[in-house]
Design a protein around this nucleic acid. Structure first.
Lengths: 203, 203
DNA sequence: CCACTTGTAGACGCCAAAGTATATATGTGT
DNA sequence: ACACATATATACTTTGGCGTCTACAAGTGG
């Protein structure tokens, strides 16, 4: 909402659209931003290129100047989101900073975060792009749990569950308005601890 | 290998496909079974009628003798899955039998259960069908939590999280090979208790 | 035996959405 | 000033999947 005035006597034509010109790399990023928002609403299949063009305030033709196809664009979106999360989390799987890092990543790119873990992880054609995460997390959880829990179905169960629950807790934290990241990390850590406790043999 | 006798001298034609005939109501159920399996793999958009027909070992034409459209079939699948879950759980939200009931429902119809809570709940056009569940669960969780936790973002956070985590734990239990339902209920209850504890004010 | 139901087989129309093409306009750097 | 990159606008083609139709085959019950 903004300018668009200073005439009043002019003809009934629109004053002239601003036509924001950006250099190629910047425009590409801006398209990725818009596409991330659009895809985050409904996932790959349910989002049309027109939706994305509208979100980016561009024509569909421009999308093809930057990306070969819808799938190519989607991959670029997921790649960028993945890289961002990876940059925050680093190799620090399960260290003390892992959960705070996830919270930082989610806060820095909430749409990308939600897109990755609510939609892309369920889309057969694209889940491979984030499966490295899922697999690594399960792997690490499995190794850590194995020091306290005997091998068996309950170990597998907890190793599957811990990454999932952590991510859901982070997303719920986004939805709740991102209160106090420090407390959030502590509370989520507590939940994870609770899952580990629940996976121990009954006795 | 079987009957269809006296070949050997006959022409090279295939012995003749059995062609299983069922009465209308049974066929309908069989189609719903197959469609549930097919949709459970990739959700609504990514599943074609051909996939479903193949899964049901039928032609696409037959699907239209029983359902008006793809959306109609999907709704029927979701409805049935919903009813099954509702029958197990009943009005027993948050009672001692709630989690065992969920486990029974998941074991009785694992594909339907996964379809409902992994896919349908994220599909804008269909989430309404199960939103009653989600809303009711959040509602109940919210009310129960409010007795121990002051209103605020952490209450909302936990109320959102508890139903989600419970369902994820049930699905992970399916994936882990459904070990000992009694223990599973207890362990999941313990996790939920842990979430409630984690949502209390820090002190 | 006949009517009816259940089934196959496959061609076809249709439509939405992806992807292509062309003509034109205008900031920007050199 | 000029070339080029960035952008619009719109019309067009292609494609994939839904939905329809017709013709035929075979099991079942009165």
């Amino acid at each position: 909402m903004s300018d668009r005035e200073a005439e009043g006597t002019g003809p009934a034509t629109v004053p002239a659209p601003p036509v924001r010109r950006l250099r190629r790399a910047e425009r590409r990023e801006q398209i990725l931003d818009a596409a991330t928002r659009a895809f985050a609403r409904a996932g790959y299949a349910a989002t049309g290129l027109d939706d994305i063009a509208a979100e980016a305030e561009l024509t569909r033709a421009m999308l093809y100047r930057h990306f070969d196809s819808k799938a190519d664009l989607y991959r670029a979106v997921l790649d960028r989101a993945c890289v961002r999360v990876a940059e925050e989390v680093g190799a620090d799987d399960f260290g003390d900073d892992a959960i705070p890092a996830l919270l930082r990543a989610a806060a820095a790119d909430p749409d990308g975060f939600r897109l990755l873990f609510r939609h892309a992880s369920r889309e057969p054609d694209f889940r491979e792009l984030i499966d490295s995460f899922a697999a690594a997390s399960r792997e690490v959880a499995h190794r850590n749990l194995a020091r306290h829990i005997p091998a068996g179905p309950w170990l597998d169960w907890a190793a599957d569950l811990i990454p999932t629950i952590t991510l859901e807790a982070v997303i719920a934290w986004l939805d709740a308005g991102r209160p106090d990241p420090g407390q959030a990390a502590e509370r989520i850590g507590q939940i994870v601890h609770g899952v580990m406790a629940a996976a121990r043999p009954t006795g």
